[in-house]
Every structure is written in C-alpha cells, then in structure tokens.
Computed example of a mutant assay.
Amino acid sequence: MRTPAAMIVGIVLGPCGLILNLTSTLAPNWRDVSRIPDKSSDIIQHQGIWDICEETQSIHETTCNIEDSLNYFSQLPVQVSKGLMPSALAVLVLGLVVASLGVRCWTETPHFLLAGLGGLSLFISGLLSLIAISWYNHELYNLPVPSGSTLQVGYCLVLGYLGSCLEIIGGISLTISFSQCYKECKLKKAAANYNYPPAKQQDLATSTTVASSFDNKDFEMYNRTPTPRSYTNALDVLEDERASKYSYRSRPPCDSDL
C-alpha cells in the first residue's frame, strides 16, 4: 500500500526538527551582547547555554571559552535549558527510530501502533524544547549583563522555535495512526465474536487489515471480479467504425451497432 500522507509529513518533519534543535543546542548564540564597556565597539559577545564567544567584526575573528564573570551559567533559565534541550534531543531520536519501524515503507502495510508511539515521542520532544526556548526568551533581558551594553536575540532561539514547531506538527501527524490502529482492533474484535473456525478467523483478520489499508476506490479495484472469458474478444470490433469517423465515405453499421 502507499504510505499515508500523515506518516510522510511526520517522518519528514521529525529529522528537520532534529537538525534545527541540535544546532540550537550546541551553537553559542542564544543572545548577542554588543557595546560592552571597556571593550572595543566592534566586539560582539555571543552567549549560549554551554559557552561564551567573542567576535571581533573588523578582523572576523572569534574567540571562545570566555570567562563567565557575571555568573551567567548559574542562572535558572540557563540551567533548565541545559537539562531540557539534551533531553528533548534524546526523546526525539528515540521517537524517530520507533516511527521508522512503524512506517516501514518497504512492507505492504505499516505498523500503526509503532508509528503512533513514535509521533507521541516527537510531540513530547517538541514540547520540552519549546519550554526551554520560551523560558530563556522570556528571561532574556533579566539575565546578568554588563551595564550599558545592548542585547539582541541570537539565531539559536529562532532555530529552536522553528525546530520545536516542526517536531510538534510531525508528532501530531504521526499520532493520527492511533485512529487507524483502533479501527483495525475493532474490526478484528468484531470478527472474533463470530463462531468461525480458527482458520476462518485468521482469514477474516487478514482481510480486514488489507481492507483498512486501502481507500474506498482502491479497495473496489482490489476486489473487482475479473471479466469472464466468454466476454473477451481479441478482435477490435470498433476498428472499422473509428476509421469511418475520419473519412468522408459512409459505411454500413458494423455488428457492434446492432
């Protein structure tokens, strides 16, 4: 069967969110501090949750491992972000593995329960990273900074917001598989309630799984009765009629018209 569109959306947006959140977690650019007193005006300090770097714009030189003289890393939003962002990445990787096993594009039908569990993991991961990004953004101007300097939002927050939203959307798309899993369980339970032999019940369960994996149109084509051999004819009885359509001579009607 074709992979459902909801699964495709989830399995595509999940890795995109992983790349964006991984960059947001590791890059030291959650906020930018410029116009720092006692320093050159072309120096911009990039502060992240793991490191602080200073960039000299005139010579395009960046120096990292800057000393934290204002106890920036000891602040609660930074500490929470250090815990939530790696946890969100771990849950996301686990969710992608489970979702990949559930989608199983190389088999006839996917495993809807695994796909739904993978989508739930993606959704939780997106919420964890969104909480960390939102809290840090809310406390951005309350974190310690040299007096008289200027603060700006770093690109890591933008990537974090975007990656979290992609994970949440992808997780919701994959959790739609739970509804299909419920339908399959309901059909199997209904088939098991009848007093059929065990072999017949197995055939009914298989047929319900196949039926649920097709759309109505595809299912009708799947169960279409083949044309009896008595109605087949290798000769094209309308060949002369089509030829006369493009000629000026009129011909007597062929047998098909009768």
Rank of each mutant, 00 (worst) to 15 (best):
C16K: 04
T56Y: 10
R224T: 10
Q152S: 10
V33C: 06
L166F: 02
A243Y: 08
P198Q: 01
E108G: 01
C254G: 11
C105M: 09
Q75A: 06
V145F: 06
Q75V: 03
L70F: 01
L128H: 01
P86E: 12
K39Q: 15
V9N: 00
M85W: 03
S134P: 10
Y161F: 11
R104P: 07
V9T: 00
R224K: 07
S247G: 00
S213D: 14
L166S: 02
K188T: 15
G116K: 02
G118P: 05
D218R: 14
T175C: 02
V210Q: 03
V78H: 00
R2S: 11
R224V: 13
P37E: 05
N216T: 15
T232M: 11
T206K: 12
I11E: 00
F112E: 08
W50Q: 13
S34K: 04
H46L: 11
C53E: 09
S212C: 14
N29Q: 11
H111E: 10
W50Y: 11
A6F: 10
L26A: 14
I59P: 06
G154F: 01
G102K: 00
M85K: 06
K39P: 12
D68G: 00
V237E: 04
R242P: 01
L94D: 05
G171A: 01
S100R: 02
Q47F: 05
P146V: 08
C165N: 15
S121I: 12
L204A: 10
N65E: 14
K189R: 14
S212A: 09
I36L: 07
V153A: 05
D38P: 12
T3R: 01
I169M: 03
L258Y: 05
N216I: 13
N137A: 14
K200Y: 05
F73W: 00
F73E: 02
R2W: 10
A234L: 11
T109W: 10
I124D: 00
G95H: 01
V153T: 06
H138N: 12
M221Q: 14
L187A: 14
G102V: 09
K186F: 09
T62L: 07
W135P: 07
K186D: 14
L204P: 09
S121M: 12
F219K: 07
H60G: 07
S164H: 02
D42E: 11
L114F: 02
S58K: 06
F73L: 04
E184G: 08
V91C: 05
G48T: 10
T225M: 01
A243G: 07
R242M: 08
S125P: 07
R249P: 04
Y194G: 03
E220G: 11
L140M: 13
R251V: 15
